[in-house]
Amino acid sequence: MAINQEFIGRTYPPTEIYSVGREKIREFASALGDTSPCYFDVESARALGYPDLIAPPTFAIVFTMQAGGQVIHDPELALDYTRVVHGEQRFVQHRPIFAGDEITSTVSVDSIRTAAGNDMITVKAEVHASNGELVSTVYSLLVSRGVGEAS
């Protein structure tokens, strides 16, 4: 079932605050097998000019994927979330995410299109620090595979 184009621009309430912790950054970097000192050692991060540990470029997925759940589970969009797969991902970093950031994400429907029987919906998350600074903008393309496709 094609998603109604009227949902483009639909915006959801900002999420609860996500507190970016040093240990979470270290855990996430370790899970990527990445030993870059600026993810683990505060002095190394400061030597690069940052106030604290910085998060890896894909770290925002930790809280934006959850925020995007607002779209996937929106009853008015009526997405069949059992058929949703992750098609593309894009991170625009206005600045790195730092340990100590208090983050909120505001999610909106950026675009909707249908191709080969699949609904493709791009979810945009604007990630703000507690002072209102836009830290990153994160785009996730979700593909809802059409019923009746061969595969």
């Binding site: 910085i54 470029p57 797969v85 991902q89 991170f91 625009v92 970093q93 790195p96």
Partner: peptide, 17 residues
């Protein structure tokens, strides 16, 4: 990021799965 020496210098990153 290993080549850059500073992962904070990645200003945009995208991929298709």
């Amino acid at each position: 990021t290993d080549w850059l020496g500073d992962p904070g210098k990645v200003v945009e990153y995208s991929a298709r799965f």
